[in-house]
Amino acid sequence: MSDKAATTRQRLLDAAAAVFSERGYARATTKEIAKSAGVAEGTIYRHFDDKRELFKAAFAERTALMRADTLDRLPELAGQNTVRENLRRLVLALEEAEAAIAPLQAAMSSDMQLLEALALPVEGGAGGVPTTPLVPLAAYLAAEQELGRVKAGIDPERAAFALFAIPFTAVTSARMMRGVTITQSADIMGALDVVLGGLEP
Score class of each variant (00 low, 15 high):
A16N: 08
D193G: 04
Q80G: 06
A142L: 02
A142S: 06
G190D: 05
Y25D: 04
L92W: 11
A186V: 12
I44K: 07
T70Q: 07
L196D: 04
E32K: 05
T169K: 12
I101Y: 11
R158G: 00
R9Q: 14
E116R: 15
G179F: 06
A18T: 11
G79W: 03
A143V: 03
A107L: 04
T169P: 00
S109Q: 13
A99R: 15
L141F: 01
E95N: 07
A18V: 07
A64Y: 03
H47Y: 07
A57H: 07
V83N: 01
A139T: 11
T132E: 15
S109C: 06
L65P: 00
I166R: 03
G153N: 03
A139F: 02
R73A: 14
A152H: 11
L65V: 14
R67D: 15
P136F: 01
R27Q: 13
A34I: 06
E96Q: 13
E76A: 15
L147Q: 13
R11I: 03
S173M: 15
L77G: 02
F20S: 05
A159R: 01
L141W: 03
P75K: 02
A16G: 13
F55V: 09
T169S: 08
A126L: 13
R27H: 10
V150P: 09
P136E: 05
T82Y: 06
I154M: 01
G198S: 07
F20H: 08
A16D: 04
L92C: 06
K151H: 10
A40D: 14
L114T: 10
T63M: 14
L147G: 08
E41K: 13
A5Q: 13
L54K: 06
L87F: 02
E157R: 05
A142D: 06
M1P: 10
K56M: 15
S36H: 11
A159T: 02
G79F: 03
Y140L: 00
A138N: 05
L118Y: 01
S110C: 08
I182W: 00
A162E: 10
E95C: 05
L87E: 03
A117F: 01
M177W: 12
R88L: 12
M177P: 00
S21P: 07
K4Q: 12
L77M: 14
D14T: 12
E41F: 03
A174T: 09
L12N: 08
Y140Q: 00
P133K: 05
K31R: 14
Y140A: 02
L192N: 01
D193A: 12
T132Y: 11
Q105R: 15
F20C: 04
S173E: 10
V122D: 11
G179T: 01
K31G: 14
L90C: 03
P133G: 05
D69Y: 08
L163N: 02
L94V: 04
G197Q: 09
T29F: 06
A139N: 08
E22M: 05
Y45C: 10
S2H: 10
D187I: 08
Q105I: 12
A159S: 07
E95D: 14
F161R: 08
I101C: 06
T131M: 15
P136V: 04
I101V: 15
D3P: 00
I44M: 06
P156T: 02
M66A: 10
